[in-house]
Design a protein around this nucleic acid. Structure first.
Lengths: 343, 343
DNA sequence: ATACTGAATGCAAACGTTTGAAAAAATTTA
DNA sequence: TAAATTTTTTCAAACGTTTGCATTCAGTAT
């Protein structure tokens, strides 16, 4: 073994033949400490590399200055943007973020939440996993509520809980995207949908469907195919769409990745974008502006979501008992680029 | 304020008119506890939602089961893959990962390391920030070494330290990429380089340069332009390259993002890829297989790096004092796709 | 009745730090 | 020089849990 015991306040006290209290006060610049003692102790502490044990302080003060961020994945642009937003607000306030990735697994999510509570995390930002969403088991969340640990839902929410939440208006974003396709004269608009059951998937799907209905276009079952958000999961579905007898003339992808997959398939088939087929994605990921043609998409303000979520957390912290939880819905914004702009 | 004090072992002890020791043992299934007592206590604990305070345990056992992961960013595919690899190995062993994002800032890095040490983190995985690298200040790392906290360098390393490290063989990956371009008959190969000073940037640049030299091709200063890894940072440099009097006939990008930016510029200029200009990226990000044309790139095994780094950490943990640190270099692999395959 | 066994529980210390109150030491005042 | 005052330091408790050892209280064997 190779862990040399870290220097403690007691060690220093022994060295100076004084009590730990004196050392503690000296290190914290307490006024009732002799100037010389203070200097000597501080200097000695520096040379031996003393660093105060925050664990013991956490125990004493019942404060850990740690927040949990529980997300299904960090592989997408959006999630990392959210974390960046949280980080930008909370790091300067002295909070440490404990980022936990559930990989969409209910069990991992449960374990992480339990661990965060055991570690006396002071707040939890949660985007529930797909499995949790599907299963409908929410007991692991009850625990968080019971403990009165502030819980902020991000993005994927669960309506039955009395909590704060920050989400993007996926519905209207999707609606606007499809409406734009309609305005461009596309008539047969397909949808590469996300996994069933997830709020994001369903909201975007509803936006898509309602828009078609509004404009009197048929909602054709066979034009709606599931993907898992990843680019490769869009390849076969897109191929299936484009090889139909009456193929769609536009595709609305649940996110940019999926739309880019469809773009690739369309090009392989020699279709011209946007003349032969229109494409729209969702997320406004950095790459979407630089595909060829560039991808029309819907901006999803990840960083802002993170910052808003932080705000919700902070106001809940300083709130009285009759605090009513807030739900923030940020607008999403259609960004028109080349992939749908035909004349 | 709304934080209801969590139930402690003492609370339960009071309720059962017994000592905390008994409760502790009952909850931990200690054999020397009466069966009934045990059952009653366990049941009661469950109903009141008792959860043991890991902070106090950490203090007692001097073990936190927490590891720090300090990285410059989590916005790229590669970094998230590394974290996934770490996670896959270490999470099942009971470790919690504390992911810290430095945004390439020296000060944040320093602060995070200090905080991790204060929190008695049991090991630290570090990919140093660009600022740290540039400045050459490494005192904040001395502290970690002094404490004998296992420190594993990931990817961006600092040669002067006696530590373990896991990196990808960027040099030979870059070399192979450029060699492939040479084999395809490209003669004027430009390089969109990463920020100066970073190991990744410099290694890939050296691979590029040495390959040109090996094949007797000139290394033209004006064909080497810096970017910051992001797609938009490649646009102007690529434009500058392609508008030269004698423009390059191939571009080697420091990563896929940059190569995709160049691809966009080339297409805007009506150049055919790979006939008029060859393109190669680096990272094998998911999107690279689905651009049009698909992007030749170099695979960088992020998940494997994470898993290897975990292994290094674990073997250091169980090692004797005369443990000699290990440096793992994983090979990178050229992946030939359409963007460079001309006949 | 007495000693012995075994089961069940309690005591006290420990982890590292802070902090109000008490004590000690140094200084000033009368 | 004694008392009063001020400065400096120490004491002890607290945070929540575990654990070796001591204790208690049965029941059992002598």
């Amino acid at each position: 073994m190779n862990s040399s015991r870290p220097v403690t306040i007691k060690d220093i006290a022994k060295r100076f033949r004084c009590s730990p209290s004196t050392v503690s006060r000296a290190l914290n610049d307490h006024p009732a400490i002799n100037e010389d003692t203070r200097k000597n102790i501080q200097e000695y502490a520096r040379t031996v590399g003393y660093q105060r044990n925050e664990v013991s302080l956490s125990l004493l003060n019942k404060k850990t200055a740690t927040l949990g961020v529980v997300v299904p994945t960090i592989s997408n642009y959006y999630e990392t943007a959210v974390i960046e937003g949280l980080h930008n607000v909370l790091q300067p306030m002295g909070y440490t973020l404990n980022i936990c990735v559930t990989n969409e697994s209910y069990l991992l999510e449960k374990e992480y939440l339990s661990k965060l509570l055991s570690n006396r995390t002071e707040g939890i930002f949660l985007s529930v996993s797909q499995e949790t969403y599907d299963s409908g088991y929410y007991e692991h969340l009850e625990q968080v509520i019971q403990r009165k640990t502030p819980l902020i839902f991000i993005d994927r929410e669960y309506e039955d809980f009395e909590t704060s939440r920050a989400t993007v208006d996926d519905y209207h974003g999707a609606f606007a995207a499809v409406e734009h396709l309609v305005n461009m004269g596309y008539k047969q608009i397909a949808h590469l949908k996300g996994p069933n059951g997830l709020t994001v998937s369903e909201q975007r799907f509803k936006g898509y469907r309602d828009c078609l209905i509004k404009y009197g276009l048929p909602v054709r079952e066979e034009l709606i195919i599931n993907t898992n958000f990843k680019v490769e999961s869009a390849i076969l579905p897109a191929r299936r769409l484009l090889e139909m007898e009456t193929p769609p003339d536009a595709i609305f992808g649940v996110n940019d990745q999926v739309a880019i997959g469809a773009m690739r398939v369309a090009k392989d088939k020699g279709l011209r974008i946007p003349q032969d087929i229109g494409l729209v994605g969702f997320d406004n990921s950095p790459i979407s502006a630089y595909t060829f043609p560039s991808l029309t998409t819907v901006n999803r303000p990840g960083r802002k979501i993170g910052m808003e979520a932080s705000r919700l957390f902070l106001s809940q912290l300083n709130a009285s008992d009759d605090y009513t939880h807030e739900g923030i819905v940020l607008p999403s914004e259609l960004i028109i680029r080349e992939s749908s702009l035909r004349f």
